[in-house]
C-alpha cells in the first residue's frame, strides 16, 4: 500500500479515555457460549490484537463491537457512545473490515468505495475526495475503473480494507484481514495497519497468527473458548513464560498421541501438534535441557521418529500453549 502523505506518528494514549470500551460481554448461541464475559478497551492510537484459534470467539466479539450482533449481556461504548442504545452515532465512528472479501465483484473499485461511503451520508464532494485518498492509500488509483472481479486476491484484500476507511473512522475493526493472502500483500496490509495506528486511529485486529500480533499490536488479548484469558503488551505476555522453555520437535508418527503423552509429564505445561508445515510438536516446559532425554524416550515409546529438536525463545505461541495447554494453530 502507498505511504500516506504527511503521516503523523501518534503513540497510544494510554492514559486517555478509551475509544472502545467493552465490558463483560456475553453471547450465547443455543447452549453454546461463544463469548463469555469478555472485557477489553482500546485507547486512541492503540493497536489491540485479539489473538486466538478459530472458533475462539474473536469474530463474535468483533460483531458485537460493530453492532452486528446483540450481546446477551454486557456493554460496548465507542467514544463513550453505547453501541446498543445509540447505534447510529457509535457506528459512524467504526470502520468494519470483515474477514471475507465483502465487496461487489460486478462493480468497479471506485463504485464499491462510493457505495460504502454513501451509506455514511458523506456529502458528495467530500466523498469523492475521500475515495481518491483511499484509492491512493491502498495503491489502487490506477485500477479505480476496473471491476473487482478482475483484481488479484491481494488487491481485493486491500480494497476490502479501503472500503472500511472511506468514512474516516476513528476505530478500525479488522477481522483476520490477512487470511489467505500472499506474503507480499500480507506485509503491505500489516504495514498499512501500523500506519493507521501511527495516525491516531484505534485499531482492533483479530488474528490467529501470533507473529502478526507480536509485530503489530501495542497490546494483545488472548481469547479461547469465548473468554479473554490474558491481556497485555506482547512483552508482558511473554514474561508469563519467561522462566520456561519452548521446545519444537519436528517428527513423524502419531504426533497427537505423543503430544498427549508429553502433557502427562509434570514438567510440561503444554504440548500440541502444529501440522501447518511438516509435523511439529510444540511444548512449553520447565528446564528443557534436563527434560529433553525423557521427551526423546517418550517419542521412542510412542514410535515417533524425531527429525530435529530446537529450544527457542518463548513467544506468544508459547504463551498460548502455556495458558491453554494447546497450540494456537489448530
Amino acid at each position: 500500500m502507498a505511504t500516506p502523505q504527511a503521516a503523523q506518528t501518534i503513540r497510544p494514549q494510554q492514559d486517555a479515555e478509551p475509544l472502545l470500551d467493552c465490558s463483560k460481554l456475553v453471547r450465547r448461541f443455543g447452549s453454546r457460549t461463544a463469548v463469555d464475559g469478555v472485557s477489553l478497551d482500546v485507547a486512541p492510537g492503540e493497536t489491540y490484537g485479539l489473538l486466538g484459534p478459530n472458533g475462539a470467539g474473536k469474530t463474535t466479539t468483533i460483531k458485537i463491537v460493530c453492532g452486528l450482533l446483540e450481546a446477551d449481556s454486557g456493554t460496548v461504548r465507542v467514544a463513550g457512545l453505547p453501541v446498543r442504545a445509540a447505534p447510529g452515532p457509535a457506528k459512524r465512528l467504526i470502520g468494519y473490515v470483515p474477514q471475507e472479501v465483502a465487496l461487489y465483484p460486478d462493480l468497479t473499485v471506485r463504485e464499491n468505495l462510493l457505495f460504502f461511503g454513501r451509506l455514511y451520508r458523506l456529502p458528495r464532494r467530500r466523498l469523492e475526495r475521500r475515495v481518491e485518498e483511499v484509492l491512493e492509500l491502498i495503491d489502487l488509483t490506477a485500477r479505480g475503473e476496473d471491476r473487482v472481479d478482475s483484481l488479484s486476491g491481494g488487491m481485493r484484500r486491500r480494497l476490502n480494507i479501503g472500503a472500511g476507511l472511506v468514512h474516516s473512522p476513528t476505530l478500525l475493526v479488522l477481522d483476520e484481514p490477512t487470511v489467505g493472502v500472499d506474503p507480499q500483500s500480507r506485509h503491505a496490509i500489516m504495514e498499512s495497519v501500523r500506519r493507521f495506528g501511527d495516525q491516531g486511529m484505534a485499531v482492533i485486529y483479530t488474528t490467529h497468527y501470533m507473529e502478526e500480533a507480536e509485530r503489530l499490536c501495542d497490546r494483545v488479548g488472548i481469547i479461547d473458548h469465548g473468554s479473554l484469558i490474558a491481556e497485555g503488551t506482547p512483552r508482558e505476555l511473554v514474561a508469563l513464560v519467561a522462566e520456561k522453555d519452548q521446545v519444537q520437535l519436528v517428527a513423524s508418527g502419531d504426533l497427537t498421541r505423543y503430544a498427549e503423552a508429553c502433557r502427562a509429564l509434570p514438567e510440561v505445561e503444554g504440548a500440541d501438534v502444529d501440522r501447518s508445515d511438516e509435523g511439529t510438536v510444540h511444548a512449553v516446559v520447565r528446564d528443557a535441557r534436563s527434560l529433553l532425554p525423557r521427551l526423546l524416550d517418550l517419542a521412542h515409546a510412542n514410535r515417533v521418529q524425531i527429525r530435529s529438536v530446537e529450544i527457542v525463545e518463548p513467544d506468544l505461541e508459547a504463551v498460548f500453549l502455556h495458558l491453554t495447554g494447546t497450540a494456537l494453530r489448530e
Binding site: 460483531k63 460493530c66 453492532g67 452486528l68 447505534p87 447510529g88 452515532p89 457509535a90 457506528k91 459512524r92 467504526i94 468494519y96 470483515p98 474477514q99 471475507e100 472479501v101 465483502a102 465487496l103 461487489y104 460504502f116 451509506l119 455514511y120 472500503a163
Partner: peptide, 14 residues
C-alpha cells in the same frame, strides 16, 4: 454469503 450485507449493517442505518 459474500458478507456485504454485514458490511451494510455495520453502517449507521435506520
Amino acid at each position: 454469503r459474500q458478507g456485504t450485507l454485514d458490511r451494510i449493517a455495520a453502517a449507521p442505518l435506520g
